[in-house]
Write a protein that binds this DNA or RNA. Structure first.
Length: 236
DNA sequence: ACATTAAGTGATT
DNA sequence: AATCACTTAATGT
């Protein structure tokens, strides 16, 4: 049992090391990731006008109140988008995966509104920053761009609706469940390397409450609890 | 061995 | 479901 834990944190460690293969240029990553999404003409334009960026894990990419001047196209890694409530607690909104862009950006940056969310690199991230100024042009010039934009907005909108009624209609135990499922899918593993404290923060709850709910689930035989680690069992 | 941080729990609101 | 106060367990130095 404890060997399993050690192995798992070892692998977690290894997989988050900077990859040597990342000598690949962002242009290549872009063509790989968006090959089927944009026509090559647009890909060329992105390559010449965009700026490749990389961000270490844990760094904030956009903070509250900041005016966003770039649209990010995520090529690698994972961006976490959060919203803060009156008491300063942060609620997890959604993740932006490679091949996606942040839908909030359209609603904020195009009209120079300050950001209402905070975006942080959940894993080391590589993305292309596209100047907002290009957007208007591209929307009319490139149908693929337009549909890409509309698609991401539509997807995110559905997710937000889902998040909304989860908060409004579901109780915390159900939210916790779907949160754990999400985390597990995301890492492709039944082991979740998070403390109760961290989970509580993302669900805008408190550590004690999360501990209690998790303990209950453990007693029901649906998962196992360790320090900084949770293992989902098959009957989860 | 000691300090620090994570997790468990009863009682109260 | 949240908060307080306190205990116990795991981990780091």
């Amino acid at each position: 049992m404890s060997l399993e834990i050690r192995l798992n944190s070892y692998f977690k460690c290894v997989s988050s090391l900077p990859l040597m293969e990342s000598e690949v240029s962002w242009q290549d990553l872009l063509r790989q990731e968006f090959r089927d999404v944009f026509e090559s003409e647009l890909l060329d334009e992105i390559c010449s006008l965009g700026q490749g960026k990389s961000v270490e894990e844990g760094r904030t990419i956009v903070d509250y109140g900041q005016i966003v001047k770039f649209m990010p196209l995520v090529l690698k890694g994972l961006i976490k988008v959060m919203r803060r409530d009156e008491e300063g607690r942060e609620l997890l909104l959604y993740f932006v995966h490679p091949g996606e862009t942040c839908a909030m950006t359209f609603t904020c940056c195009m009209q120079q509104h300050p950001s209402e969310v905070r975006a942080e690199a959940e894993e080391a991230v590589v993305y292309v920053a596209l100047p907002v100024a290009l957007m208007d042009d591209w929307l009319v010039r490139y149908p693929t761009w337009k549909s890409f934009v509309m698609k991401t907005i539509r997807r995110r909108f559905h997710e937000l609706l889902h998040a909304l009624d989860e908060v409004a209609f579901h109780h915390l135990d159900q939210r916790l469940e779907s949160y754990l499922r999400m985390r597990s899918e995301q890492s492709g593993s039944r082991l979740i390397n998070l403390s109760h404290e961290e989970i509580a923060r993302e669900l805008a709850s408190s550590r004690v409450v999360i501990s209690r709910l998790l303990k209950k689930m453990e007693n029901e035989g649906r998962l196992l609890l360790y320090r900084n680690q949770i293992k989902l069992l098959s009957k989860f």
